[in-house]
Design a protein around this nucleic acid. Structure first.
Lengths: 343, 343
DNA sequence: CGTAAAGCTGCAATCGATTGTGGCAAAAAC
DNA sequence: GTTTTTGCCACAATCGATTGCAGCTTTACG
């Protein structure tokens, strides 16, 4: 219940001026003070259990040592690893991350953004895929530092850390091709996400290269429900007799699983399915999912590194770092079925 | 690039003193200023795009409007829902959460704790299960406000929001009993977690009540690997011919799945398995998992509510809120097998 | 020995907002 | 008509740390 010791208390005990005490306690300035004096100050600080008030420091130095991380939904399993990667790079540098969700809503994105600039965060990491009139552009105009992770920065010149999505899709299509599939459906995410675009484009390009029939269907969201709904439509209405589907991400693929099951079709016997991301436990699904592994943790690390470089050294080390991805073959893909029952 | 407007700027434009501007802009004090004047101030604020510097405010009011949330590992799928629940209650009240991971390490727990008190967080939410010489006791002695979520507060008089674990276990055992199981193994989590204790105790109590054989085995961690290792031992060395296992949580149950598969045993045909938590996608596993649903989101909400009550009203509304749980029966449980192959 | 340079440390301003106190003027009370 | 009350606002202190500047002492050097 005793009030925390301030630097003035430390100075008094050490018999020096608060300014001197401050210098003695800071790495950057401790060279300016006599070694013996500095020792006395440190001793006093330890004795009093002095903990610097970072709010006061922040006021003076106009930095809060916190980074705002804006994600659509922490419940989406790809984000926890990203967040951990971010944190693992931030913490050793003395920064903390405050994570906020937008639920995909543009309005709450703006809301939390404002709330965070009010908090004087030193920078932002955007993991939201929204590409429309997102706040990124506004942030840039306000001179706010930021980076993107797992998405591209559509026009806004912020650095970005992304996976090599195009290559992952290409691998997926080739894998299916080798298994004999010649008619493949792609269930793409919402067009507002930059990832949806590049994956869809890579898909059509790969199909063209291999001279196989590829059709893309757009899901309204990256969710299990959306995947199921779209797959229902593919099966019931599209008239496209696909023997395999490459989904925009694992959630959509899971929705495809559900739809298949509802239609009495088996995976991979009747239809092969490939996901994207290799989310945690993807290997425990029924069947274990073939999917493209994206290094989410490392993506987080890289994005944090990009941001901190920008903040502390005021330099852009890179405008874009792309990390390799890998196709993980499990049990949701198999030889193309001869004929499949369409309604 | 123009420096942000301060309250002094607003005051100048509105032709009033900064103190007056401050009062005009704050809900609690706007009654102290003339309505017409307040309007002028608000207009000026809007015109300048004034955003209060919450660091400066925090220095004066000695509150940061942030809450520290300490969890073992964000990657564990039960925590994202809890965090979202916390956030959903905090945000409308103007608070932000800063989430840190400890990786179960006592040392880093202490580290992040210190880092957060230095950040002047207004309170803590502990989701770490560690019960030994945790920092909770120290926090209490320092007069720091905190609550526990998903764990009990062993001796430390902090409020806690928990699920009715004992009841969940009882339901599980009864469910198995009805299916004809008479020899059940319980794979408990590490004894340092309060949840492990109450679940294990509830298990032996339930078995005693129903007069069936129950044996408990301890896992060194709440992880898939630990679950597999322990189940391996149960099958190969224990000599306990269980026809069913109730796992301490879903991760352990997943490990049991793996072990079973490795031993050529099928679930639920040979051995029934029940998890705990109903983590996301538990219904998509192979087989879909029977498990106890814990309302994690609501647990987060309740813990945040408990903490905010303590902070803002300085009252303890409750020392302990326990939320109901439910057994979700899926496909990992079935009638007891006649005889099961043990090595 | 004198002067210049270097090394330390104290002083005070500063970051941007909040808030107790006091003063002035208008309204109310007598 | 005078006094008291009330309403509104200005003033200035304050939160706790950082930092440019100046002054003092000590060392170095010619």
């Amino acid at each position: 219940m005793t009030p925390r010791a301030t630097i003035a208390d430390v100075a008094r005990v050490a018999g020096v001026h608060p300014g001197t005490a401050s210098r003695a306690l800071n790495r950057k300035t401790e060279g300016q003070v006599n070694t013996e004096t500095a020792g006395r100050v440190r001793a006093a600080a330890k004795q009093l259990g002095y903990i610097p008030n970072s709010i006061a420091r922040g006021l003076r130095t106009s930095s809060s040592m916190t980074i705002g991380v804006i994600i659509p939904d922490l419940t989406n399993p790809i984000f926890p690893p990203i967040v951990r990667g971010i944190d693992s790079h931030l913490a050793p540098h003395g920064y903390s991350a405050v994570i906020v969700n937008t639920d995909g809503s543009d309005a709450t994105e703006r809301l939390v953004f404002e709330s965070l600039v009010q908090r004087q965060v030193d920078g932002f990491i955007f993991a939201t895929g929204h590409s429309g009139h997102s706040i990124a552009g506004e942030a840039y105009e306000r001179g706010i530092r930021a980076v993107m992770v797992n998405r591209d920065s559509r026009g806004v010149p912020f650095p970005a850390a992304v996976g090599d999505d195009a290559h992952g899709i290409r691998q997926s299509v080739e894998h299916l091709h080798q298994l004999g599939h010649r008619r493949i459906a792609h269930i793409a995410g919402p067009p507002t996400f930059s990832t949806s675009q590049v994956r869809a484009e890579a898909f059509v390009a790969a199909c063209a290269d291999l001279r196989i029939q590829g059709e893309v269907f757009r899901a309204p969201a990256y969710s299990v429900e959306a995947g199921q709904t779209v797959m229902d439509a593919v099966l019931e209405q599209s008239g496209f007799p696909a023997t395999a589907v490459v989904a925009g991400n694992d959630l959509l693929a899971l929705g495809v699983y559900h739809s298949l099951r509802m239609h009495g079709l088996r995976c991979p016997d009747d239809v092969s399915v490939i996901g994207f991301n290799d989310m945690p436990f993807a290997g425990d699904f029924q069947p274990p999912m073939t999917t493209v592994r994206t290094p989410h943790f490392e993506l987080g690390v890289e994005s944090a590194r990009l941001l901190l470089n920008q903040i502390e050294n005021s330099v852009l080390t890179a405008l874009r770092v792309v990390l390799p991805v890998d196709l993980i073959v499990r049990a949701s893909t198999g030889p193309a079925a001869e004929n499949i029952a369409f309604s």
